[in-house]
Write a protein that binds this DNA or RNA. Structure first.
Length: 164
DNA sequence: TCAGTGACTATAG
DNA sequence: ACTATAGCCACTG
């Protein structure tokens, strides 16, 4: 089963498997989409929460029904730490997040964990940036990462891409 | 088991 | 300021 959150700047697809969310798919908005947000019919409780999160910034409930089955231990710790401790409108570096998750020095492994984040946007991997003031990577493209950060009013002079 | 792989980082020119 | 490089670490086939 799957359902949708349509936001002016992106579409998020929630993929469910037996009452657990297996993953989310994130894609930038097509050109000429609406400027109002909506969901697919009969949204789940989680999707309603997500909708309110983006509409009113009401915090997401702590115990989201995510499927952690196949996530290795370190990655699970990193993702849970990111979800709990890096709220809307803030950022963290890969190395700092490694420390917060209990493995100082594992910055590179955190990057790999972010690359495999099954729940983009819900687990806010777009808020993780480089220690050298660079933007860092993003699965859907760095431009889209910038857009998501701008959505949260995060202003930053990312040194790596001095162009544009 | 172990060599290879990255959304990293500090350091050296 | 920019580039190259050598450590770094969890995970993978």
């Amino acid at each position: 089963m799957q359902e949708y959150l349509i936001h002016p700047d992106f579409t998020l697809v929630l993929i469910w498997k037996k009452n657990r969310m297996e993953k989310t798919l994130l894609q930038p908005a097509d050109s000429g989409t609406t400027n109002c947000m909506r969901t697919s019919p009969e949204p789940s409780r989680t999707l309603k929460n997500l909708y309110r999160y983006y509409l009113h910034r009401e915090p997401l409930h702590q115990e989201l029904p995510l499927d952690w089955q196949k996530i290795p231990p370190f990655r699970a710790r990193v993702l849970k730490t990111l979800f709990r401790l890096v709220p809307w409108g803030t950022t963290v570096t890969y190395s700092r997040l490694a420390s917060m998750a209990g493995n100082p020095g594992a910055a590179r492994a955190v990057g790999t964990a972010m690359a495999g984040n099954p729940w983009p946007v819900i687990i806010p991997c777009h808020r993780v940036i480089r220690a050298d003031n660079g933007l860092g990577g993003f699965s859907c493209g760095t431009e889209f990462k910038k857009k998501l950060l701008a959505l949260e009013d995060i202003i930053h002079n990312y040194s790596t891409s001095a162009d544009e």
